[in-house]
Design a protein around this nucleic acid. Structure first.
Lengths: 201, 201
DNA sequence: CCGCCTAGAGAACGTACGTTCTCAAGGCGC
DNA sequence: GCGCCTTGAGAACGTACGTTCTCTAGGCGG
């Protein structure tokens, strides 16, 4: 089997298994079975399980970033771009494999014993916060809005994961709408009381 | 050693170790060392590690509930009672042992392989959401405020844990203030635009 | 002072895991 | 067609863990 094929198969299976059942609960033998790659090829392609974990996290970061970016790009107004984040979450929460944010989970499981995992989680969250900050700046809203929206997205993910329902996305979206309206300068001709812009779900 | 002493020592040490390093990373031998309780007494008092984990979670739930309740009780106005939740979080985040919500962490680590752990996490979060809902009702605010405030608290905890800083508490508190003002009926004589009530930190 | 019961220390046991090694089969150059 | 190199399957190895067992020491009632 070509190296590229091995990489892809292993990372795909590892991501699925680690996300579903936790990293420490999934052994290399199970990963071999699920990926259809022999242990030999596995260790020829990756130096260790720890390395696989880090690559899985990097892959997941790219998928998340692409997904959010795409969804935001599809929205037109600056306000809708901000709210699109929560629409993306709403769809994700409905996926029946949803089990919370993989980075929060990895951090909870390994953050205190693997500095590399902790760093990946920190960078993933910092990246998202910066992205939101750019959107907020683009909307001309007060900069303090950005961490507020990030915290709402974060809270929606853990709430939805533990509750096992997706309704947190809607709650977060409505809260975000209120916070955006409060942070939007009326000077830009924006009227928070205008019902047409208050497109809550 | 008296049974009561054994229980307390083991649960205290287990809570500290599990919270700091994760549950699966802490073995029974280390728990024996940290608690100063022999393996024999340990297994005389608890049937298994799984049972200890569940008792630790129950204990932690009680500690959290008491801490929040006390802090809220110290506040006077309904609005300040709601904001007191974030003051409690702010203090907690400054504790240098802070490593996120123990229930989120336990759920991330074991939620998919231990239904009991998943249940504890679900009940813990549901209990908090109901508590917030009661406070919101007591404040005469719209019921939709409750899940919004819960999600903010949730997001602040994971954000603070991964970032390693406590500033998320302040961001969540300011967002909460805005959402509370938006959900408070003006009919009760409440004026959201009144600066005197807008005691952001 | 003697026997019994309990507790502590740690060895022992079974299992599981990450990683490496063995061995046989198969593809490919010559 | 023959030898060599790589690959796959799985055994093997070292370690760690949860749990139980062994043995010894000591406290306490009689």
């Amino acid at each position: 089997m070509v190296d590229e094929q091995v990489r892809e198969r292993v990372l795909e299976a590892a991501d699925r298994l680690y996300y579903t059942r936790g990293i420490q609960s999934v052994g290399m033998d199970e990963l071999r079975l699920a990926s259809g790659v022999s242990l030999k090829s596995l260790y020829r392609t990756f130096p260790s399980k720890a390395a696989i974990v880090l690559e899985v996290l990097d892959r997941r970061h790219a998928l998340w970033t692409d997904g959010v970016t795409e969804r935001v790009a599809a929205a037109t107004t600056p306000r809708d771009k901000l709210l699109a984040i929560y629409d993306y979450l709403a769809d994700w929460f409905l996926d029946d494999t949803f089990r919370g944010c993989g980075f929060i989970n990895a951090f909870a499981e390994l953050g205190s014993i693997s500095p590399e995992v902790a760093r990946r989680a920190r960078e993933h969250k910092a990246g998202f916060q910066e992205y939101v900050a750019r959107l907020v700046a683009g909307a001309g809203a007060d900069a303090s809005l950005a961490p507020q929206l990030s915290i709402l997205a974060e809270g929606a993910q853990t709430t939805a994961a533990i509750a096992g329902t997706g309704e947190a996305a809607g709650h977060a979206r409505r809260a975000a709408g209120i916070l955006i309206d409060a942070a939007m300068p009326a000077a830009l001709g924006w009227n928070p009381r205008d019902e047409r812009h208050n497109n809550a779900r």
